[in-house]
């Protein structure tokens, strides 16, 4: 049971799975394209939503959104299934593999033993593709890995039925209908419009570009509010959210800039390339922020001055992003 499957490495799991699945079905979408059309970029900081006691800052849209929007905009029909029984979930998978159909699925990173141990926390929304079975082991295309790998039946069951938030419940998905022709240009603009709208126009201070200003205001007071140890921990957590396997420390900004770059070539739109360059510069500033924050974490000393400086850096990015996305909104509005 093995299909002729070409694996390409990507930076983010969801856009990577889309790109690899589509290639199998004859549609060539590079990862940035999938990310951009699916409106993957975002920012939000919600101090009341906590993970292990630390508030969640996210640099992208919630899991599952990219896939949904991408397939809607390109016109792909996706079959998605959830299971209550582990045995049924695995036999259904085997059936699809027998038909020669690679299957995308949600897993928990904790049970994927091919990943380095340091990455294996309980993150339950990691997307992978299973494309075959050999000697009782499942063949896996994990988008963040350079090459394909494999996993034992037992581990895959645990990964698909991990508990916690959110529960994958064995969810698996595959395209059942691929359009011959699709409105690529329209899909790109709709994707951009949604992202730039979200980044600039949600009237709540926690979301979009101004969410970063909000975070910077909170971050400024972490040392006196939380004490040294906790402030450093929270900062470390922020770096991890910003890097999140392969975004180059810029919280998906480089990935989105790559999308704008590719789209500008495709649509012969020079303004888009200019905005891509702005986005690259914003990403570089975020990277500087992470670099400086990493220093602070390494030395384990937090003082009000360093945290003020860090907050200033974030605030600067926030203002720049507001401008960049406003421009992007104006460009995409009429399209």
């Amino acid at each position: 049971m093995q299909v002729n499957f070409t694996h390409k490495q990507s930076a983010h799991c969801e856009s990577g799975v889309i790109s690899n699945l589509m290639r199998f079905h004859g549609l060539d979408f590079d990862e940035p394209m999938a990310f951009g059309i699916g409106s993957g970029l975002f920012f939000s900081y919600m101090p009341f939503v906590k993970l292990n006691g630390i508030p969640v800052a996210t640099y992208r849209i919630w899991p599952g959104h990219i896939f949904k929007k991408f397939s809607n905009r390109i016109g792909i029909k996706i079959e998605s299934k959830k299971f209550s029984s582990t045995t049924t979930a695995m036999t259904e998978l085997d059936k699809m593999l027998d038909k020669g159909q690679p299957v995308g699925m949600l897993t928990s990173v904790f049970y994927l033993d091919y990943l380095p141990a340091a990455y294996r926390f309980h993150f339950n929304a990691h997307n992978i593709i299973v494309f075959g079975k050999e000697n009782g082991r499942y063949l896996v295309s994990d988008p963040v890995m350079e090459t394909t790998t494999d996993i034992a039946y037992e581990d895959l069951v645990r990964a698909r039925f991990a508990k916690g938030m959110p529960e994958p419940s064995g969810r698996m998905y595959y395209p059942i209908q691929i359009p011959g022709e699709f409105p690529l240009e329209k899909a790109i603009w709709t994707g951009i419009k949604e992202t730039s709208d979200r980044m600039t126009r949600i009237p709540i201070p926690l979301f979009g570009a101004k969410g970063m200003t909000y975070l910077s205001k909170r971050l400024r007071h972490w040392p006196e509010r939380l004490g040294n140890r906790k402030a450093i921990l929270w900062l470390g957590h922020l770096i991890r959210m910003q890097e999140e396997i392969g975004t180059g420390g810029a919280g998906f900004r480089f990935l989105y800039a790559a999308f704008l770059d590719q789209s500008s070539t495709l649509l012969k739109n020079n303004e888009m390339f200019d905005i891509s360059k702005q986005m690259t510069a914003n990403g570089d500033l975020l990277r500087d922020f992470a670099y400086y924050a990493g220093r602070v974490c390494k030395n384990r000393t937090s003082d009000t001055k360093t945290f003020s400086e860090l907050a200033d850096m974030l605030e600067a990015v926030s203002h720049r992003e507001q401008k960049t996305f406003e421009q992007l909104y104006q460009v995409s509005k009429s399209k």
Partner: peptide, 27 residues
Amino acid sequence: KLYYATDESGHYKKVNSVGWEPETVAM
């Protein structure tokens, strides 16, 4: 890991990275 980085003209290409210190520290 796969990173997206720019060439001299500002266009993107894919480059692999073996590790990045700030992330290692945070992890």
